[in-house]
Design a protein around this nucleic acid. Structure first.
Lengths: 354, 354
DNA sequence: CTGAAAGCGCTTACAG
DNA sequence: CTGAAAGCGCTTACAG
């Protein structure tokens, strides 16, 4: 495990004394070459292991690198190579737990590749996506990862064209964008939601609300389709049972309040996210209804919170770690980066709420 | 408000036709100069408004920039200027809601400055901090923002030295690092926690547990000191009432379970975070205890979740938006960037749990 | 296996 | 007000 205790912080960089340095500026490849008594080309070669160098020279270079604490200038490298070493991650809304967790794993995956993560939070705003597209070309990014649940497809064509032209690797997480030639890593949405709703039907529920067909959310709509399929097959579909009012907690809360105010009969709720489900539980409790006795609730995504609600939340699992690992492989083995679709499974996590 | 609806995404970049382009490569300042019939220097001057240029030439350059869809290469600019335009944000743990929200606001603040956010998640790991320190010099960062609750102070000296040498702007959010000459933006921790506990004492509680003096957490310890001050003043301090077992939800849950297993008398809990408080509520409910009737609970930080717990969580407010704004000013007005301490207030948010 | 030289795309003294 | 030239720190053909 990681060292996470107080004392561990103290080890930091303190160990060892910094070599004395003549000038204030960082050492460059020229300084290294001079000190090692070789040419710039040789230094570059041993640094990048890009060609065979005799052991003697290699050792001299290594020694000089050490002595001078040489660090290659990433911007110079990038300028020369034609692209930087940073990958931009566009997230739909970092305030949603699911996106925060994904961000965490993507960052560490990228780090394994020696790449940096540039974070750009969309906050569900189309205008911000447009802004990013305008800024991106100047950065000469190595890649762009689209982790967005909104239906951004219509505005994607120019980005794809531009990316191809400039050699930026594009990837999507959470939404299938393979029809644009973008390799995509998604979770099972429709089938998972369908199975969950089928289970509720099997348990005898027919008045099952769906909360979370968020306007403009591609992923939310996808989940909704699974719900609809199951409900229609059971002859239980009713448009009045579908809610798409707002985001996150408020969506769940407001939908239930509205339903109850209308006197709507309701015995179960399939949420489009765990936050939505948590909001729904709060509203139910406010009205004196019990979960799951009066109304059963199922979430979507299995965020940490769910296990600590009471009743604990029944939900559908997700696998951000796996998604990030697939992403790494995608950036790693550049050869096999076809516009593949990777589908991660979701399974039902049974807890107390349904 | 932002456009957040389905249709808004369609406007994107689709409007207008892309200018025809001869070559596949992006236009450079040379292309612009050639097309405008001026020198590179002139192009650079109008682009950066760094010197007076005659109106005629300025217009010619602007026209060429438009026509060629010219975008300056940020890496070339950075190489020449000696530093990039990206600011690294080191967060303690992006999976904690508080950090995710902060990240969101810092990103947009930086964006206003035309800078990019490089995200580096520490996950409470000392080893990762060290890794970052090793990688950072190569990036020639414009700034580094430390948003870390752990007690990183001991390993900071080398970073500070290196930063001064290379001209990187350092800033801290959440932890007072001014003694290292680092401008810091913090929230009131000790006083806020003291006031909260004093209120519980006033309400008649004496057996008030503190959960969240997380090992190695500088901020957690700071909050704890406020608790201790209040408890000692009331003659109610008891070491057995202090818990620091784990992180996040589990910390609150496990602490209560352990306390109850020991048969400890307990009428109130001050949590070191809202997640901890939520975990505590779950544990209490598992044991058939009512909140707030049997045990009152106060959180810390006012994350969105708190308003949707039942009972809703009484907690102490925080102001990530303000913090991000202060940070922007700090990076903006480079002149006034002394190692100032900015303290943001926390107020009691009274809801149902205490 | 090694080195001298060109060049990635900018900005900024330096002359005029 | 404008331009020619040097240089930021690298990597990679090109010769040898």
């Amino acid at each position: 495990m990681m060292k996470t205790f107080s004392n561990a912080w103290q080890t930091g960089l303190s160990e060892g004394t910094a070599p004395s340095r003549d000038s204030l500026a960082s050492a460059t490849v020229i300084d290294v070459a001079r000190r090692a008594g070789v040419s710039l080309a040789t230094v570059s070669r041993v640094l990048n292991a890009s060609a065979v160098v005799s052991p003697e020279l290699r050792d001299k270079v290594s020694a000089a690198v050490q002595a001078l604490e040489y660090r290659p200038n990433l911007m110079a490298q990038g300028l020369r190579k034609g692209h930087s070493n940073t990958v931009a991650l566009l997230v739909g809304d970092i305030a949603q737990r699911h996106f925060a967790e994904l961000t965490m794993h993507v960052q560490s995956s990228l780090e394994e590749l020696g790449a940096s993560l540039m974070l750009y939070n969309l906050g569900h705003s189309a205008a911000r996506l447009k802004d990013f597209f305008a800024r991106a070309p100047a950065m000469r990014l190595r890649g762009i990862v689209l982790a967005v649940s909104d239906g951004i497809a219509p505005s994607l064509a120019p980005l794809v064209t531009e990316a191809r032209r400039s050699g930026v690797t594009l990837a999507a997480i959470g939404q299938d964008l393979t029809r644009f030639g973008i390799a995509s890593i998604v979770h099972e949405e429709r089938a998972a939601c369908r199975r969950s709703v089928e289970r509720l039907l099997t348990l005898g529920h027919t008045r099952i609300a769906y909360v979370g067909r968020i306007k403009g959310s591609a992923v939310g709509s996808e989940r909704f389709r699974g719900y609809r399929t199951a409900m229609k097959a059971a002859g239980a579909f009713d448009d009045a049972l579908v809610f798409d009012l707002a985001f996150r907690y408020a969506a769940g809360h407001d939908a239930i309040v509205r339903a109850l105010d209308r006197g709507m009969a309701l015995t179960a709720v399939q949420g489009g996210s765990d936050e939505i489900a948590a909001g729904a539980i709060a509203a139910l409790r406010d009205r004196g209804l019990r979960v799951p006795e009066d109304v059963a609730i199922v979430g979507f995504g299995d965020i940490e919170l769910g296990a600590y609600l009471r009743p604990a939340l029944t939900t559908l699992s997700s696998h951000p770690t796996l998604a990030a690992r697939h992403l790494r492989d995608l950036f790693d083995g550049k050869g096999t980066t076809r516009a593949d679709l990777t589908v991660l499974p979701r399974s039902l996590v049974l807890r107390g709420s349904a």
